[in-house]
Each structure stands twice: as C-alpha cells, then as structure tokens.
Nucleic acid binder design. Structure first.
Length: 133
DNA sequence: GCCAACGTTGGC
DNA sequence: GCCAACGTTGGC
C-alpha cells in the first residue's frame, strides 16, 4: 500500500469538487518527478488531498481506483483515477506540518513545488492522527 | 553535455 | 506583490 499527497489549487479543483463528482481523473500533471509517482500508484493506494495557495491544508483522503493511463497527445504524461474516501475531521495545515519535527523528511516539505509526492507509512499514520485524533 | 537565462509555482 | 526554489530551454 502506497501513500501520497496530491496537491491542487482549490480555485482550480477542490475537495468539494471531487466529492460532488464522486471520482475524477487526476490529470494535467506536467512534471517528470510527479509523473513518475503517478506511474507508481496502485489501486487502493491512499492520498491526501492538499489545497495549495489559498488554504494550505490537507483536507481529505482519496483512494486510487485505477492505475495510470496516458495523459495528453504526446504519450509523455500520465494520469490516475481517484475517488474521495472521507474528509479529515480537522484539516492539517502546512503550518502544523512544518511545526512537527517528525516531518523533517516529508517530501512535500523538502520539494515544496511538487504536485505529487510520496508519504512514508509512519508519516501517514502521524498525519491521520493529527487530522482525526 | 554544460550552464546561464528564463518561466512557473507556491508560500509569505 | 514579492521572492525563493526549481524545472526547462537554448546557446555554446
């Protein structure tokens, strides 16, 4: 089971949009590192939906429902299908993540511009604890 | 193949 | 609105 963070500007596509849609194709990623992570995703992997820019907080949990398929015409890019699992009881803000020493190695902090990043299992547990504990 | 210039992104 | 980080592009 893999764990991920998927970032989106809520003005462009938000958690509420995903809940309304019931599922979505996570496409439009145009960064090779992020693309490679999309290709690693397996059905059943879980991902936090992070609202960048205006909100700067993780707000919900998604599940991967289909592995990658080509995105765009040139065959270089990839997208996966996701669905909402549940909202977080308490959104986990970027400030809270930064304040926790155990997240020193968290990829979304170390590579702050990456729209798709990986989460280690122990990091995932702690994130959920902060969100729901 | 290297590296400077440039564009984009995201946080503040 | 600004700036830092970083990926991409283009000239050599």
């Amino acid at each position: 089971m893999g764990y991920w963070v998927l970032r989106s500007e809520p003005d462009a596509y938000s958690w509420d949009d995903l809940v309304r849609d019931g599922a979505t194709e996570w496409n439009g990623v145009r960064n090779y590192t992020a693309r490679n992570f999309l290709k690693e995703m397996a059905v059943g992997d879980e991902a936090l939906f992070y609202h960048s820019n205006t909100e700067k907080a993780a707000v919900g949990i998604m599940a991967v429902t289909r592995t990658w398929q080509p995105d765009g015409d040139d065959g270089k890019w990839a997208s996966v299908a996701v669905k909402p699992v549940r909202p977080l009881a308490h959104p986990v803000t970027l400030a809270a993540i930064k304040a926790e020493p155990k997240f020193a190695e968290l990829m979304m902090l170390k590579q702050s511009r990456l729209s798709v990043s990986k989460v280690e299992p122990d990091e995932w547990k702690l994130l959920l604890k902060m969100a729901e504990g």
